[in-house]
């Protein structure tokens, strides 16, 4: 059997595929962050908690109302997105003229509160959420067993990522949005309701986090901590991709998933740190990130 650095190529393919799956979560989460930062200039530290809310939303729909995964996929992002709209209207909208740090502190505080409330109610061991019956089982590939659910995650994430990119970079609505961040006063003068657009954008970014949460529920334990563990990595992804760059977030999300997957084979102890090492290197060479523009 062929080997690369002592690892059979077959096993390597398996690891790359798993890297891709983790990358889809990174991409989906960093996408929401990038949208929010790019268009609102808010560093949304509540993102991890909102991802957790998505997973808990799915869990609560199933256990309290008996609504299955597919309903959750539809309902939860909308409901959590609406809570985002409320947060933006009540709190964030008061901070736009202040330094970035205020937004960061506010959203970080909100995240701690939300996680604390859920921990108090559900404990830290988490709740089980079953894989939907339609996606049970898996495919026996040459080099590994690919659970159907994981394949679905890659596909769904790719569709959502590309759809979002298209919406913001290629449509008229996206054009308005980008113009509104460059020069809100001018755009408003053309009769476009800029504050409402910004509110909806935040709601959309939050909805993306919740969607990722619903997709994560069957794989990971639904626990109050799940977002806090992930959010730091996701921030690193956004920084490497370039704050606010949507394409950057998608490409780096998948790319770093792959790199992390390889690290887990060759030097597993470093798999938590490798992303931050890359971040440090990228910041030294290109301070605006791989896809970011210097302002």
């Amino acid at each position: 059997m062929d080997t690369i650095f002592g690892v059979p190529t077959q096993a390597l393919f398996g690891q790359l595929l798993i890297g891709l799956i983790n990358g889809s979560f990174y991409a989906l989460l960093s996408l929401g962050l990038a949208v929010i930062f790019g268009l609102l200039n808010i560093i949304n530290f509540t993102h991890g908690a909102q991802y957790m809310l998505g997973a808990f939303g799915a869990y609560l729909l199933l256990t309290k109302l008996g609504l299955n995964y597919w309903w959750a996929l539809l309902i939860v992002p909308i409901v959590v997105g609406c809570t985002g709209v409320i947060i933006e209207r009540l709190l964030l909208s008061r901070l736009y003229n202040l330094d970035h740090l205020y937004g960061l502190l506010l959203t970080f505080g909100l995240a701690l509160i939300i996680q604390g409330v859920f921990r108090n109610e559900y404990g830290s061991s988490g709740q089980p959420y079953p894989i939907p019956p339609q996606l049970m089982g898996g495919q026996k590939l040459d080099f590994m067993f690919l659970p159907n659910y994981r394949a679905w995650v890659i596909a769904a994430s790719l569709v959502v990522c590309l759809g979002t990119w298209y919406l913001i970079e290629r449509t008229k609505l996206g054009g308005y949005l980008r113009a509104a961040t460059e020069n809100p006063a001018l755009v408003q003068a053309f009769g476009i309701n800029v504050p409402r657009m910004i509110t909806l954008t935040y709601g959309f970014g939050v909805g993306l986090a919740a969607l990722a949460g619903v997709m994560a529920a069957p794989i990971y334990q639904v626990s109050p901590q799940m977002g806090a563990d992930l959010i730091i990595v996701v921030f690193a992804v956004v920084v490497i991709g370039g704050m606010g760059s949507i394409l950057g977030a998608i490409v780096t999300g998948f790319g770093l998933g792959l790199i992390e997957g390889l690290t887990k084979v060759f030097y597993p102890e470093a798999s938590n740190t490798v992303i931050f090492i890359i971040m440090a290197i990228v910041l030294l060479i290109r301070p605006a990130g791989l896809f970011g523009r210097e302002k």
Binding site: G14, I18, M144, M226, K264
Partner: peptide, 8 residues
């Protein structure tokens, strides 16, 4: 969080 790589 993700153990699939190690499990493989």
């Amino acid at each position: 969080t993700d153990f699939s790589s190690f499990l493989l």
